[in-house]
Design a protein around this nucleic acid. Sequence first.
DNA 1: CTGAAAGCGCTAACAG
DNA 2: CTGTTAGCGCTTTCAG
Lengths: 332, 332
Amino acid sequence: MNITIYDVAREANVSMATVSRVVNGNPNVKPATRKKVMEVIQRLEYRPNAVARGLASKKTTTVGVIIPDISSIFYAELARGIEDIATMYKYNIILSNSDQNLDKEMRLLNTMLGKQVDGIVFMGGHITQTHIDEFKRSPVPIVLAGSIDPSGGVPSINIDYRQATYDAVSYLIEQGHKNIGFMIGPLNNPINLEQKLVGYKDALEAAGIGFQEEYVIEGDETYESGVEVWKKFHDMEERPTAIIAGNDDMAIGIMNGAQDEGVSIPNELEIISSDDTKLATMVRPQLSSISQPLYDIGAVAMRLLTKYMNKEEVDEGTILLPHRIEYRDTTK
Amino acid sequence: MNITIYDVAREANVSMATVSRVVNGNPNVKPATRKKVMEVIQRLEYRPNAVARGLASKKTTTVGVIIPDISSIFYAELARGIEDIATMYKYNIILSNSDQNLDKEMRLLNTMLGKQVDGIVFMGGHITQTHIDEFKRSPVPIVLAGSIDPSGGVPSINIDYRQATYDAVSYLIEQGHKNIGFMIGPLNNPINLEQKLVGYKDALEAAGIGFQEEYVIEGDETYESGVEVWKKFHDMEERPTAIIAGNDDMAIGIMNGAQDEGVSIPNELEIISSDDTKLATMVRPQLSSISQPLYDIGAVAMRLLTKYMNKEEVDEGTILLPHRIEYRDTTK
DNA sequence: CTGAAAGCGCTAACAG
DNA sequence: CTGTTAGCGCTTTCAG
């Protein structure tokens, strides 16, 4: 049997309430008895049982984190931001991969709520009404990180993807490009469909360039899909002279695909990537990329969640962090 | 107030014991009453409180995972393997970053034990006696993943790093190289000091090549350190004609450092990397690399842990998974 | 096959 | 400043 608060109380000749008080830093304890209790705690190597505490207090100081795939650089960076801030606020994290699978997401949500997490950070590409309904029923607060609820009802941390894409495309247009390809991520993700794509179209329109359906090709965020998509661009009668890509993996796929065929970058093809993960500076040429503060998105999401868990007033639940474009060697 | 087992019992006209039985799939329940209870559970949307359950049963079905840094590709891949198998066995994971900091590691260990995890997967570079002592006192099983306890007392999953390094160096020697540099990871990590370095020396010795201290340079596993270390190799009067690197990040640093100076790879410099993460095929030239089954190391570690948690007999706690060398374009 | 009852280890009033 | 006393929601004997 493990040693309990009761053992400590007995050894220290106090009640368990007193032990509980010193353990929880309650000031209403005479220094002398506090000292005495502390000693016994040390001697017995007493370690409070958080489960019992959770049951009694209805707080577990753990938050659930639902993430598409922890082995993706993008999400791992968010996760790191989340975890650091969680630690800072004394929370632990239950982390689970969803693979963006709706069933799995709902199941995870439920097991986490069953485990009485105090809050949840949710990351996922495709947020449906089903999600939102479940989120609304949750007894604990939920915030989205790097994910968008099109209806805007769920708190979330992101950058302004529309604007960022607009900026990138506008830059390319300024460089004289008219045929600008866009390898976009899955279109069931509103970030892609409702923000990035719109930013792309808006920039084109602002410059009086006609939108060409075929220049927008969907990828699945992987390097391999980048390589594939390059082939499609390559085969076009009017091949794009510049491409923006939805993330670094895809951009590198395009770049390698093009370079392996002898296309000179950036001279014959300019590329602007997105996300600016550490991959961007590891490849040659180094990727010009839309940079978003991944770590901060996670960190701010967790910070926001702590406020909700604390029932603090929050003025704005939908937060846009700043972005910028890093111009490196895939642009002139 | 949330709805409890008691509410269900009342609504279904049975005792809470019976509800508990159906929830836990205990066969000793008449089908009819099971059905009745199930219906009430559905209707009331009853969700068992795992905290209460944990307190009563002394099992939380959650395991702790202590990881140096989830945003490192290497560890993220391990984590994914761990989590997948955990899910398969109905466990959840409490994930925390340690940054390889001893204090933090010990603190995490303690808070996880306080949260009554059923077991722990530990990843860390430098495992000291302090670690081992703490591991031994743990009331729940602990297994290491991609980490070594030099004393061999703690169960662990790895590859044979000595042999893998030996193989890589031997290959380079066969290619005619005599001056083989080794950019090794931190030497306080026994994997580096006691295995990789030894494999390097053994291969040299087997070929009758003298060991040269200056050819072994320590890096901190980052890309940047690779770039730095290249400079040192570059400045040597007898510059190495081949280099093996302790991981892909460092290898890419070296490669880019060399290439940016016009060194032709693999013609003037051959490189064999380690870990074979997805980076290896994303850079040009693609890295030849010692390949270890990262995901599987995590998966097997978790699987082993489930056996310990189940109190099954385990014949061998120290498991070495197979490795191989992927020859790509940084070797001839 | 089902129910009653005793905890699991701790927090949180409520007295004093 | 300290102790008493209820629970928190569930599992688990032990009867029947």
